[in-house]
Design a protein around this nucleic acid. Structure first.
Lengths: 237, 237
DNA sequence: TAGTGGTCTAGACCACCAA
DNA sequence: TGGTGGTCTAGACCACTAC
């Protein structure tokens, strides 16, 4: 019997976090080995002396973090190959620079309205009038990030009202245009022509982040950020 | 009145996903502008004609994705600076290579027991006997990833039983040692001395992933993966 | 201290899907 | 087709915190 977990001796609090931790412990100590079927919600609720909804909440958390695999009728299994999910919070560039103890400012180095280049039109759909902005973000006066951004004017009609000298487009969009979907790509590239802009050698290895965000069916913005050497992304597994 | 959302005309299903989408729509169309306080759970439940728990589930999802900021007594606000969270699933290297249509194999290039080097001991705590493994993962016979891994033998006592020629340590650990916490760092570096191993120029820009996983208070493994040029990480925002 | 979100319950019905 | 997870309800109490 495993009912001891419900007894005063090794009791777990009848809270969903307590149950989550107890089940996590059983996965870790291989009471529930990889691939095994664990008891049903109803059985666990009886064991822990709580409502089924509470067990459900606990197991849902573990499933979302990839440790359990749940299917109706088939039951709940310990994932044989846990999918490691890393959640990375992408801070505003300003915050990122300020967090490093540097004073933030930025320069808009290019600002025009032009058709989307072919490479982007293939991905986003053709658009004869798109807003094109390039910005250099600086920390303590040194260039930190070069940003090349395209904006769909149809998706962001009131951008013209914004004072883009006072607030970066980046930040304006984040504050004003909630997206519903997005993609992020991370790659390592040689600085190349950005070496001059970023004050580093052209062969320096730098991180490039490419993001596209969508609001429903419309793309909002496509942005490619090339970071000065030394930037690292940290995240929690 | 906003009660029309509960009427047959623009009715939303009384499901938590329906309510989530309706609230998301109101954030997008600025019915609930950035920074604004939205109605309480009780008020929304009345508007949508459902139980408070259902509204709660919907708002919790939006809060977890960073669009809402909830605090007891203070109420629920639309986030003024939504934190963009990217969730990246870290596949097994084997899967990653196979997904690219290549045949996977690997070579263990080093295998020893030695004290932790100082740089790691600072982070993980000193340890006189740690398992040190380096592995070269290949796709179609070409080197794809160089992996330098340290393992805490105390946290993984039965690793010796595993057949490390048949299954990579990487995979054995994923299958057998659930972690409870972890960190991931992503950076761009020049291939340098890994150029030879990865069959690329020493000045090529490559991605380096450094991961540490913990099981409770004990570190399990520290691994530094240097990927051959061309690897990109994709994720969903 | 009062108002808000956070949680738990006991029960019910539904949706999916393996047997 | 039956068993399982997924959801919803109506109500209750608790925990946090702005006021």
């Amino acid at each position: 019997m495993t009912s001891d977990a419900a007894l005063p001796g090794g009791a777990v609090a009848p809270s969903w976090t307590g149950i989550r931790d107890e089940v996590l412990g059983r996965i870790r100590d291989r009471t529930y080995p990889p691939g095994a079927l664990i008891p049903t919600e109803t059985e666990l609720a009886a064991e822990f002396g709580c409502a089924r909804a509470t067990v459900s909440r606990a197991l849902r958390e573990l499933a979302e973090s990839g440790l359990l695999d749940r299917r109706r009728k088939a039951g709940t299994r310990v994932a044989a190959e846990p999918v490691r999910k890393a959640t990375m919070t992408i801070p505003l560039i300003r915050r990122q620079i300020e967090a490093a103890g540097m004073a933030y400012d930025f320069i808009v180095t290019h600002h025009s309205v032009e058709p989307l280049p072919d490479a982007l039109a293939d991905r986003l759909g053709p658009m004869s009038q798109a807003l094109h902005l390039t910005t250099l973000h600086r920390g303590d006066g040194q260039p930190r990030v070069h940003e090349d951004r395209w904006i769909n004017p149809q998706a962001v009609p009131d951008l013209a009202d914004a004072d883009l000298a006072a607030i970066s487009v980046n930040e304006w969009l984040v504050r004003n245009v909630p997206y519903t979907a997005g993609e992020l790509r991370i790659e390592a590239v040689a600085a190349g022509p950005f070496g001059d802009l970023l004050a580093c050698a052209p062969e320096a290895a730098v991180l490039r982040l490419t993001r596209v965000t969508w609001s429903g069916a419309d793309w909002i913005t496509h942005v490619r950020q090339t970071h000065a050497p030394g930037l690292m992304l940290d995240s929690t597994l």
